[in-house]
């Protein structure tokens, strides 16, 4: 089967019921996407599928034929952090970093969907992502800062 990952065409010939998360990490070497719970509760494995945030631990890769998958590795361009990533660096949105890839992808989905720039809307957008370090304030600060820079 064929799918697009981070803009690159990829083919996959393994078991169709392998989790997208494992295919990304093991078959494609994209270990930026993390596993925290394996049951869609923590959001650490969030990637974008056709622009929408999904838990990649809950997606059998067999469903990804022809899909556009985007992971945290796609955000920065050669040596330059995206606006969202820079905001996380400056505002302290990443601490231990394990929830960060998922958090960034959930926030990226919100940004691209033209989501509201209110703290409440940002909290809702990342409410499927658990963080145990930050208490969320700096994450929300980071996303807000990135959204403010948006036209």
């Amino acid at each position: 089967m064929k799918l697009t990952v981070n803009g690159k065409k990829r083919s996959y010939a393994g078991l169709p019921f392998k989790r997208l998360l494992d295919v990304l990490r093991e078959d494609f070497g994209l270990t930026g996407t993390k596993e925290g719970c394996g049951e869609g509760e923590c959001g650490a494995c969030t990637v974008l599928v056709d622009g929408e945030p999904v838990n990649s631990c809950l997606v059998p890769v067999g469903q990804m034929e022809g899909a556009q998958v985007e992971t945290v590795e796609s955000l920065a361009s050669a040596k330059k952090l995206s606006r969202l990533q820079s905001a996380f660096l400056e505002k302290g949105g990443a601490q231990c970093g394990i929830c960060t890839p998922g958090m960034l992808m959930a926030a990226e989905a919100h940004r691209r969907a033209g989501g509201k720039k209110t703290r409440q809307a940002v909290c809702t957008a990342v409410s499927g992502n658990l963080c145990r370090c930050t208490g969320y304030k700096h994450i929300v600060d980071s996303v807000m800062a990135a959204l403010k820079g948006r036209k």
């Binding site: 990490r25 070497g29 994209l30 270990t31 930026g32 996407t33 993390k34 596993e35 992971t71 945290v72 590795e73 955000l75 920065a76 952090l81 990533q85 996380f88 660096l89 400056e90 302290g92 990443a94 970093g97 394990i98 960060t100 890839p101 960034l104």
Partner: peptide, 23 residues
């Protein structure tokens, strides 16, 4: 001062390697 985290960029790009990321 709010110096930026040394390990921040790696954590933000997915380059940081946690134990399960080591092949």
């Amino acid at each position: 001062a709010n110096a930026l985290r040394k390990e921040g960029p790696d954590k933000l790009t997915g380059a940081a390697r946690y134990i399960d990321d080591y092949d």
